[in-house]
């Protein structure tokens, strides 16, 4: 396939998604179950998320937050139930191209430079105009001066920023973040918040897990609380105030 036809295809795809965004849900989960080591980790998870929503998933450790996010990223397959992203199965390649995932680990090769790491991921995602995009992303996370140093020598904060650049490289329509507020240094946090605000503006959908409601609240348009692998509470049209939420949270996770 030539590059040109690829590009036109991609242009068509984005057009299509913009059309379909209007009438289909970005995420549709219906009766999701997931077991690990033959014990249920998630049970009976159903929710729907429209585009441009920013959804916070809250819950104590071991509630299944990370598992839910990994299911959405197609890193795991549900044991039963139906999960569709953008109207098709989460494992489909076209769907995966639209999903960005920021996990606990950076998924960066320590012996490669930022440029090389991003080039690899960019090629894997078939990002158009890769060079320009990489330069732009590196600048965005403030690493343009470090682009030729192997990631091994990076500080933790730098690696996390690069990881953010990696996750956003292909301009995902659905951005999944696992505990973005733990272990990030202030600079990474401000960059992250800027990226999320930008994503919100561009009507992208964001899902993030957290156990810190206060810090995450201003970002979210919706929230749900997971407890022992079940959805204990889902927000209505408006989010509750922090105090109300804390009360809800303690009531749900008792």
């Amino acid at each position: 396939m030539t590059q040109q036809t690829q590009r036109t295809q991609q242009a068509q795809q984005t057009q299509e998604t913009q059309q379909t965004k209007m009438n289909t849900w970005v995420v549709e989960a219906h009766n999701l179950h997931k077991t690990f080591a033959w014990t249920p980790v998630l049970s009976d998870i159903s929710f729907r998320i429209a585009s441009a929503e920013v959804v916070g998933i809250f819950g104590p450790n071991g509630a299944g937050k990370t598992t839910l996010l990994r299911l959405l990223a197609a890193l795991l397959t549900p044991t039963s139930g139906r999960l569709t992203l953008f109207g098709s199965a989460s494992s489909e390649l076209a769907v995966r191209r639209k999903v960005g995932f920021l996990g606990h680990e950076s998924y960066l090769y320590p012996d490669l430079t930022p440029e090389e790491n991003l080039t690899f991921y960019g090629k894997a995602y078939r990002v158009p105009d890769l060079k320009g995009r990489i330069a732009q992303q590196l600048e965005h996370v403030g690493l343009q001066d470090w682009r030729t140093m192997p990631v091994r020598y990076f500080s933790r904060g730098m690696e996390q920023r690069l990881s953010l650049a990696r996750a956003l490289l292909h301009a995902p329509d659905l951005f999944l973040l696992d505990e973005p507020d733990t272990g990030l240094d202030p600079r990474a946090v401000s960059i992250l918040h800027a990226s999320l605000a930008e994503a919100k503006e561009q009507a992208k959908t964001v899902m993030l897990t957290s156990h810190d409601f206060e810090r995450t609240r201003e970002l979210c348009t919706r929230a749900l609380i997971l407890h022992r692998g079940r959805i204990a509470w889902q927000s209505e049209a408006t989010l509750p105030s922090p105090q109300e939420f804390v009360e809800l949270y303690t009531a749900c996770t008792r």
Binding site: L75, L93, R96, V99, E105, Y107, Y121, Y125
Partner: peptide
């Protein structure tokens, strides 16, 4: 596996 890169690989839209 060092930084769980294999997971990163699986995230990519590659068969």
């Amino acid at each position: 596996q060092e930084r769980n890169c294999f997971t990163g690989l699986l995230l990519c839209p590659i068969d």
